[in-house]
């Protein structure tokens, strides 16, 4: 599991996420359209609009949410945001903070040959890109 100490090193956490994503989290006025349209919100421990709120508050603990791994960049939120915030990029920035510190979300070693036989390469390539660094 990712170590909190590694993550706590992020003093300028919000700035780091904004730099990686190129997004301005203060553009968000918390209307909740992103959460309303999210196909995966029911699986998330922190809802999409709440993720942005915590980013605004510079609360690095939001990094630990499962939402960033569940978000599949379907971009419903991005298309519908009245303020033009691209939440998928914020989620990716949070994933990247993990992946760049060798904290993967997918344990490739635990997959057996038979399990991989049932998976198409398009899914493997995608999930390795999003969940391993």
């Amino acid at each position: 599991m990712p170590s909190a100490t590694k993550l706590e090193q992020f003093v300028g956490f919000r700035e780091r996420v904004e730099m990686l994503s190129g997004e301005n989290v203060f553009a968000c006025y918390q209307c909740g359209m992103c959460t309303a349209g999210c196909s995966f919100a029911d699986e998330m421990d922190v809802l999409p609009h709440q993720v942005i709120r915590q980013l605004q508050l510079n609360n690095w603990k939001v990094l630990e949410c499962n939402a960033k791994w569940i978000c599949a960049s379907c971009l419903n939120c991005q298309t519908r945001c009245p303020k033009g915030v691209d939440l998928s990029k914020l989620m990716e920035a949070m994933r990247q903070i993990y992946l760049r510190q060798q904290m993967d979300n997918l344990e490739l070693n635990k997959y057996s040959i038979d399990q991989i036989r049932c998976l198409p390469q398009i899914a493997l390539v995608a999930s390795f890109r999003k969940k391993t660094g």
Partner: peptide, 13 residues
Amino acid sequence: ENVLLQHYPEIAR
């Protein structure tokens, strides 16, 4: 067609 990927899945990276 999937046999190499099954044994060496990291090629998908």
